[in-house]
Computed example of a mutant assay.
Amino acid sequence: MTDQSWTVYLSGEIHTDWRREIADGCAARGLPVVFTAPVTDHGASDDCGVEILGAEENKFWHDRKGAGVNALRTRTLIGKADIVVVRFGEKYKQWNAAFEAGYASALGKRLIIQHGPDHAHALKEVDEAAEAVAETPEQVVRLLTYAITGRL
């Protein structure tokens, strides 16, 4: 085991409890991990820009303000992360997750990508940038365990 605390950024879909599953699994193994993530309240994430900076009549500029305000958080936390985990869910296309994977890769961050087998072809370029591609939160926990402790 290492004395170092690891920072793991959890990017991706917000409609399931995969983040909690990974955090609980790492806690059960006693791993020294601090988790960070984007804002997962969908409404707050969509409306933060106009709530803080003022209303926009045009939806494009409404979304653009929100994206910029959210980037203050996401780009800062990705920059501080030791490992970035990006999950692509079943129901929605997470363009933001793909962007965050690319951003993390450009920064030289270590990537774990998680998605089901149905997304393998669509995400082949994203997968190629990753050190590992997992299908389940349990596999992500096992990958983090091995990276941090060197033990299976």
Rank of each mutant, 00 (worst) to 15 (best):
M1P: 12
D3F: 11
S5P: 00
T7M: 06
V8S: 05
L10M: 14
S11Q: 01
S11M: 09
G12Q: 04
H15P: 02
T16E: 06
R20G: 05
E21P: 00
A23M: 10
D24W: 03
D24I: 02
C26R: 01
A27W: 01
A27R: 14
A28C: 06
A28S: 15
L31R: 07
L31W: 02
V33W: 06
V34D: 11
V34I: 14
A37E: 14
P38H: 15
V39K: 07
H42C: 08
A44M: 13
S45F: 05
S45Y: 10
D46T: 10
D46K: 14
D46L: 13
D47T: 11
D47P: 00
C48E: 04
V50C: 05
E51K: 12
I52L: 15
I52K: 06
L53V: 02
N58S: 08
F60S: 06
W61D: 14
H62Q: 05
H62V: 01
D63G: 08
D63A: 12
G66V: 09
A67F: 04
A67D: 02
A71H: 08
A71N: 11
L72E: 11
R73Y: 06
R75L: 13
I78W: 06
K80Y: 07
V84L: 09
V86E: 00
R87I: 00
G89V: 04
E90G: 00
K91M: 06
Y92M: 07
Y92H: 10
K93S: 09
Q94K: 09
N96F: 04
A98N: 05
A98S: 14
F99S: 03
F99D: 00
F99K: 00
G102A: 05
A104S: 05
S105M: 01
A106F: 01
G108Q: 11
K109P: 03
K109H: 06
R110L: 14
I112V: 15
Q114L: 14
Q114N: 08
P117Y: 07
P117N: 11
H121M: 13
H121Y: 15
A122W: 00
E125F: 15
E128L: 15
E128N: 09
A130F: 05
V133S: 07
V133A: 04
E138T: 10
L143I: 14
L144Q: 04
L144I: 06
Y146H: 07
Y146N: 07
I148Y: 07
